[in-house]
Amino acid sequence: MEHFSTHVVHNAPICERYHVMKLGWPPRFAPPLPGQFLTIQPPPGTGALLRRPFAVSDYDPLLSQIEIVYERRGSVTRHLAACRTGERLDILAPLGRPFPEPTGNARPVLLAGGIGMGPMFFLATSLLTRNKNPVLILGARDSTLIPELPLFERIDIIIATDDGSRGLHGTSIDALHSFETDGNDMNTEYFACGPMPMLRALALHADQTARKCWVSIEQTMGCAVGACMGCVIPVHGGNGYARVCTEGPIFDSREIAWT
């Protein structure tokens, strides 16, 4: 875990509302892993108080850069969207537990819902590099929220939109069902990030099909380092709650007490 000031290397929209930002990552720091996140201190003038968490969406050791994909939504992300190359941001990273390695020779099936795509891009790239043959299922509300990225040329990708304006008409879970009924109902393991209803549906499906399933959970965070107990989610066992920032954000879907 490092607390440092770094500079914006690249910052540009990738589709309607979503942007990608690359930041300098000092080479002496341990590399971030897929599933981990960083927090950014709200810059002055945003009127915001708490640091904002963002999942790491890529890491380039050669250029010493990390990347986040973010949605322009509130005062902080609007400020980020206006950041120019060279501007400095206050970063705390890398935080949280990463995605685990796929078990044995299971084929990793990655599900991304909406802005949950960021960490799935990082995991996809990492699995591709290691010849793990991942499948990426990307679900969005409509075609304006689907970016065009070089990664998509290199990976088996299925796109689904709620309104059918791009790819399959339906959710990422619908896309998963159609992928599996197309003869891909084999030895697979799920990795996912997206809205809670999507993760809940995937966890249920993983239970019914006896597959392993890892989900990245989002929660409002206070400290992001395990001190404040603010970002918990209900889990089975222990005292009934786990901290998303330190015990997560990646959880085995069977640990979570879905409500």
Binding site: G47, A48, L49, L50, Q219, T220, M221, G222, C228, M229, G230, C231, V232, I233, P234, N239, G240, Y241
Partner: peptide
């Protein structure tokens, strides 16, 4: 175990918590 979620919410220049 602490309270049910959500436990924290940001307010104008503040943080409301119920841990």
């Amino acid at each position: 175990p602490g309270n049910r979620i959500p436990r924290i919410i940001e307010t104008t220049s503040g943080l409301l918590n119920s841990i």
